[in-house]
Design a binder for these strands. Sequence first.
RNA 1: GCGCCCGUAGCUCAGCAGGAUAGAGCACCGGAUUUCUAAUCCGGCGGUCGCAGGUUCGAAUCCUGCCGGGCGCGCCA
Length: 765
Amino acid sequence: MKHNSLQDILTQRFAAAVATVAGLPPDQVDPQIRPAGDPKFGDYQCNVAMSLARTLKSKPRDVAQRIKDAVESRLADIAEPLEIAGPGFLNIRLKDELLAQYLGEIPAPLSEPRARATGASEPGAPATRASEPRAQATGSVAPGGTAQERGHTGAAWPLTDRVGLSPVEQPQRVVVEYSQPNIAKQMHVGHLRSTIIGDVLARVLAFEGHEVVRQNHIGDWGTQFGLVILGLWHICMARDRGEPDYLQKMLPRLANKRDPENRTAAFDEVKSQHDRDYDRDDTGAPDGKGKLVFLPFLERIHQNKSVSLDEIELSYRYVTQLQDISKDREGDPYHGLPQRVTSWLQLGDAQEMLAWKYCRAITLDYCSHTYAHLGVLLSPQDIHGESFYSLGDDKDPKDRLREVLQELREKFGATAGLPREGTRVRAAVRDDEGAVVVYLYNDQGEPLFKDRDGKKLGMIVQKSDEAYLYATTDLAAIRFRLRELPFPSGVGAQRVIYVTDARQKLHFEMFFACARAAGWITDAVRVDHVTFGSVLGGDHRPLKTREGGTVKLRELLDEAERRAFELLQQRAAAAEERRDEEDGTARPSLTADTAVAPAEQREIARRVGIAAVKYADLRNDRNSDYVFDWDKMLALTGNTAPYMMYAYARIRSIYRKAAERIGSPDVYAAGVTLALAHPAERALALRLARLRETIDVVAADLTPHVLCTYLYDLAADFMRFYESCPVLDAPDDASRLSRMRLCDLAARTLRLGLGLLGIEVIERM
RNA sequence: GCGCCCGUAGCUCAGCAGGAUAGAGCACCGGAUUUCUAAUCCGGCGGUCGCAGGUUCGAAUCCUGCCGGGCGCGCCA
């Protein structure tokens, strides 16, 4: 198993030599080994001579010569003689034998039969069902551990082949928080990037050998739930009256601000209907016995799930409009109603609780479906939403938000003073216009954050109405993750990664500072806010529907699949046409080769469509905005998912042909060696050998696009190899086996790399 | 006003532990197929790296200022 990248190996060998020349201990020199800027300069280069020349007060080329003399004996087995070039570069060309040996050490995939290891079709992640939410919120790491079962060993995603790469020697316990959808709303494009990027980071870190626990910090608690529950009540009463379409019918009138008279008329109709319904529902009798309509309705729908998320969303908009109109009416007839409902919920009223649970369950069902569709590994066990920090779970019901407030008051209160020992951040908690606010200072006592008037900016942790905010929840969450969250090897994360859009940067800086000041984030803990830019439409404005609404994630994924399917159909038709022109005999084509069944066509389209969406998102640096463009992401050429999937399918096609013509030789047999005589073979081999250093960079910098670039280069290297080096018709048996081995390594590497990106390969296109 | 991100070829983007002549893809022009999927490959065209200073043997990369775009700056998340 490979611990070291080629770059590591060279760095180690050069370090000793450079140390000798520089007169420093080897661990204090960086020999500046970098991939060569241009293939004609070799494979790697050592750039240290120029900077070293300054401190040694001698000429760069002389220093290069001394390094060369000192290192050459240590390099004899792996590199060709070094060349000094330009101002003092040392160009390194690895020996072909070294590349052959390095790749030769990659064992055949052991854990499964060969045919599968090189990429047999595997179904997507099994659809997960969100079951009873509160129960699911319990113990995110079950006995055996979710990290163990999924990310850590990769049981639930097809990652049984490590392509010779060993896990890190010192695994860390890592939380990756991503996706973060809201209850009672469909996921939309706004959730796409966090979900996709977070999933890749979780996969890559798990692959590196870390214990990864995913956390889905869903928005399932807070003031908006009064509105959601009211919406459900309206649905209930409309159905009870035998007018199931009442909300759909009234909403356009309520929402049409251009016709204020009609709008207020509609409002009055709804309001008087509301009052009659209310009397019918709640007779005021004690013990809930007076609740005649809504409560039984809630119990029923829990059984048959007969209210859809679409309806809940619609009812939410409906109630929002009612609030909006009510504000401008005399006496504000709905004044405070949602707040009252919210407070009933927060006091644990059975009816409100039941309504909330229903909305939550329906949303989580929908999310699970979307995750499965997207091929994202989040499961119900990963959910610790806002409600968890208020309510705890069945095993351990407790209000962690209250605990956070208490602890902040104890540590930062007036008498506690500043600063806390062992932290560089000081904090003070104060009541400010009825809200509880934490102020943060550096060790000079200067405010860390300022508002637009230059005055110190506090972080509100409790509103004047006593409600908590996201800052409180985030504090409670990190405290929980660092102190309570179980991992296979122990309790508490050593690293926490947040994947959210860049606009939340200030918020994260503030709450990180606060958590440091409180002593929760210690120097032993690493926290990262992984930010990303926006998804833009063709107009370079944030992506919206033609009507200006948010783009629903489900609709987007369906469209991806539909477009991919059309594209594949067109291609198949074009291939057929070409075949006919050539008299139907000359060219083996897709159709001739496989006669792909409709079900497989659908599955191929699904994988290509989803892959295109994901890859388009991942291929650019996270922080830049990107333009969402169907044609570009589904293009069959260039740096796209289909191009790489095609490269993979081409390799698999060779294997099918090989099986027909020559059987299936064991390309990992002891006698098979890699021959890298042709430049295209060598280039492919070098690329394959760079997998380790690529993944190391991705894991260190949390940059999926680096992996994308690597895979694109790999696919392109393979294509060139494919064009110039016949595999099955190779000149002799040895080179055929060598080339088949290269093909197999390329397929495994593509499959692993795409797998880390959450993209499933296909056997044929 | 302050803070953060961004500005590289006509378009979309890499490159930014300072390194050689700044790279891809798309588009455009030209070429390659008796051969394992032409959904491919090869060649050509195309750039004052926003502007101006500075540090350095060397700057797209680091520093300062400016210009242009996006985002953020207490009771939303």
